[in-house]
Design a protein around this nucleic acid. Structure first.
Lengths: 187, 187
DNA sequence: TTAATTATTTATCTTATGTTAAAGGATTAG
DNA sequence: CTAATCCTTTAACATAAGATAAATAATTAA
């Protein structure tokens, strides 16, 4: 869990006791490419951290598979619209490569907030940063053509295009696979 | 500031001391229709709560005014991409009616987090809820036609359409004013 | 390794939305 | 109250992206 605690340090430094408390409610999970880490309809009670692999959050709209977001090594994943509301999620988390993740029990984590304000602060900051990213993404979606969005992704997150099947990238960009092919073929 | 503390109760109940501490770093601001509460290029150091009025966050893309979001009575506004990063914001907050807001000094608020964990928790929950709304909005923007987005707004937030000039609604929906007129004219 | 499946591209046609311009309404300022 | 400004709609045309289908290309499983 070294990577995880390295990651935490970016946001808030934890005491040994706090680190131990987090270790006690966490476990390592390995999962094969293509499998769902969490299924649709399930209420999110786990926060994941990716040690190795790639994952996406996806859902179905009118029977069509739509990717909401991608996650790579050294990042937290959670379906926050379920985690923070306690409602079942209409979304699933799937890994796109054989992966290893740290699974943190969210209910136990939230209990730790009472005893360790430093842990509450840590996760406050983590989710504030995630919130900022989401707000920035909205800006990217307003009034940008599909081609602009593709080019932005190419320059800001080329790893997405290297490691993720294009059909998932297309729905992430809000376009069809056919349109994405057309754009890649240079117009 | 009654409305504000009523609003807070939805998220976390505060002690009298904590409430007093917040009152001490807050002030009431009245501002005329059309004025900017915070200008573009300014680093966000204030969290606002709307007692009365309507506001929007907007920015310019290629010289075109784009509305990122609307805010009504009984809600918090902040340009979180600046507030949580300390960087200047490319966005402004403007009121669309004569308005009255509570201005909370953010730096002083963040200092209160150390003495009042209950205040840190309160704002953690407030921004978690705002984060969830933003994630839901992304879902609304992926693979929905302009007409679907207009109809969704009409049923979920009719007050936007009642109180806000349509030219601002158009950019919020990610379309031109002309397209919005066409959609409203029933196709 | 080969067959089967899955992913990507290409082609054609259709449609929604953008662009520009102009006219009609509504609101604001003097 | 009137003129000036700003907002909204309408029209005509251009273009980006959707839909469907079929052809390649790449992966996976037997």
């Amino acid at each position: 869990m070294n990577l995880l605690f390295q990651y935490f340090k970016q946001f808030n430094t934890l005491s040994k006791e706090a680190e131990a408390a987090i270790v006690a409610i966490s476990s390592i999970v390995t999962i094969k490419k293509g499998k769902d880490l969490q299924p649709i309809g399930h209420t999110c009670k786990t926060i994941y951290f990716i040690n190795k692999g790639v994952a996406r959050i996806y859902y179905f709209k009118d029977g069509i598979d739509i990717t909401e977001s991608f996650f790579f090594e050294n990042n937290i994943i959670a379906r926050v619209e379920s985690l923070f509301t306690g409602k079942p999620s209409r979304k699933a988390i799937q890994v796109l490569e054989d992966s290893e993740v740290v699974a943190i029990n969210a209910n136990q984590l939230f209990k730790l907030y009472d005893t360790f304000p430093e842990i509450e602060r840590l996760f406050r900051k983590i989710f504030e940063a995630a919130y900022v990213e989401t707000v920035n993404r909205i800006e990217g979606m307003q009034f940008h053509s599909a081609e602009e969005r593709y080019n932005a992704l190419l320059s800001e997150a080329p790893n997405v295009l290297m490691r993720v099947p294009l059909k998932y990238v297309a729905s992430y960009l809000g376009i069809t696979q056919v349109s994405l092919s057309r754009i890649r073929a240079h117009r």
